[in-house]
Nucleic acid binder design. Structure first.
Lengths: 229, 229
DNA sequence: TAAGACGAAATTGTTGACAATCTAGCCAAA
DNA sequence: TTTGGCTAGATTGTCAACAATTTCGTCTTA
């Protein structure tokens, strides 16, 4: 029978988050209540609750009487996200390296294989999502749910940031093997080396961002911003 | 005049959070919608939104059809909170020491004076709130709003944890001067020493927690938990 | 007395109608 | 052509009534 219980606000959140992680929902996209209602087959109440939760995670921005749009992190936001990721992930990676069992490492290797497969199959959306998930998987080995949840937020933010400021627009700013080498170091129990690889990995991604204005509209904004000194 | 705009869900959140920080709202306290409606003079919609936000911050727990109660963090939650605080606050303190201007340090000193005054006046609720606020003030010097917000959550959690597992029940587990010595080290620009003081400070608070069951009801829970091995 | 069943009251969950606000298209005037 | 104002439609915000569920007191019965 499978009563097919209706979607809850968590389901809606997860769906939207996943689309953001896959970069199929671009920053600035307007999310109207009615369209989401019909998409998920739920009432406005559920959508509204989802919006509230997503606002808390900085995934959408909610403006009074104007609705919800996918968040557009500023360059300063981007700086803070990477700074926070470096602090958190290095600490969590240290714990993870201590805790990791052979089984855990096997799961990480399996995940790496998935990543590579998605890349070969040119399934970019899947590859982007898997790349993000890798960091979340890693963090879960640290046995600290609070920090995991926060890092998860940061990973979603990173996806938005790359969509906005990524050089190639979408994908290939992972020049290669960073994730593999990281797991190698973990397997050798060398937390310091793993941490260094991680920091370098994040710094490399951050360094590839370009913050110049792109459209004419954004030009106007920056002009007026600098004119108000 | 003064149209006295109604409270928003953020106002309600802040009020509840402040009460938690002051330990005037004990963990496990039931929060009924109607009572909060009449207290704040708002509709149920607003209270409901506030509940949703507070749930996200682990300040209340929301059970389907049963309503909201102030959260009761488990011992494992407590461990994670302190672990996360040590990671985050040490990193933020490092940045804060770099950034701190003479003016910033003066504000911190002023805050310390407030703390001492509240303690002398035996205004415990105020003292507890100020003690928590000190860590938030400190973190704000790090210029990372994201990490600040997360730390703020952790500080509120700490308040709940101390209310639950604090040895003396309420207040005086700050044996003295830790905050002062921390600012001293910052003023000398010695981030490492400041970090050490901070870690020791947090570890000291954590070490004073006692996780034995207190009420008969909690006895039952632990008994059944250990019986199921 | 204690356990269980029942029902009324209280509390939470959901829905839909209505109000408030914003958006877009149109028209008129400079 | 551009600017400004205006109206109609669309979108969001609020509220109150109703439905579903829980809670608590009472009563019965062993």
């Amino acid at each position: 029978m499978s009563k097919s219980t209706a979607f809850t606000e968590e389901d809606v959140c997860k769906a939207i988050r996943d689309r953001v992680l896959e970069q199929r929902l671009a920053p600035g996209t307007k999310l109207t209540e009615d369209s989401l209602c019909s998409i998920f087959g739920v009432g406005r109440t559920t959508i509204r609750r989802a919006f509230l939760l997503l606002t808390r995670d900085n995934i959408i921005e909610l403006q009074k009487n104007k609705g919800a749009v996918v968040a557009t992190p500023s360059p300063e936001d981007a700086r803070q996200v990477f700074e926070a990721r470096m602090v958190l992930e290095r600490a969590m990676l240290e714990k993870a390296t201590e805790n990791a069992t052979a089984d855990d490492l096997k799961r990480l290797r399996a995940h790496l294989a998935d990543e590579e497969q998605a890349l070969k199959a040119a399934d970019i959306a899947r590859w982007i999502r898997l790349t993000g998930k890798f960091h979340i998987l890693l963090s879960q080995l640290s046995k600290n749910d609070l920090m995991c949840n926060f890092l998860e937020q940061l990973v979603f933010q990173t996806s938005l940031i790359i969509a906005l400021y990524g050089r190639t627009g979408a994908a290939p700013n992972c020049k290669g093997g960073d994730h593999e080498r990281l797991v190698d170091a973990m397997e050798r129990g060398n937390a310091t080396e793993a941490g260094d690889i991680l920091i370098h990995h994040l710094a490399s991604i951050e360094s590839q961002l370009v913050f110049e204005a792109r459209s004419g509209e954004q030009d106007l904004h920056t002009i007026f911003a600098t004119a108000n000194d």
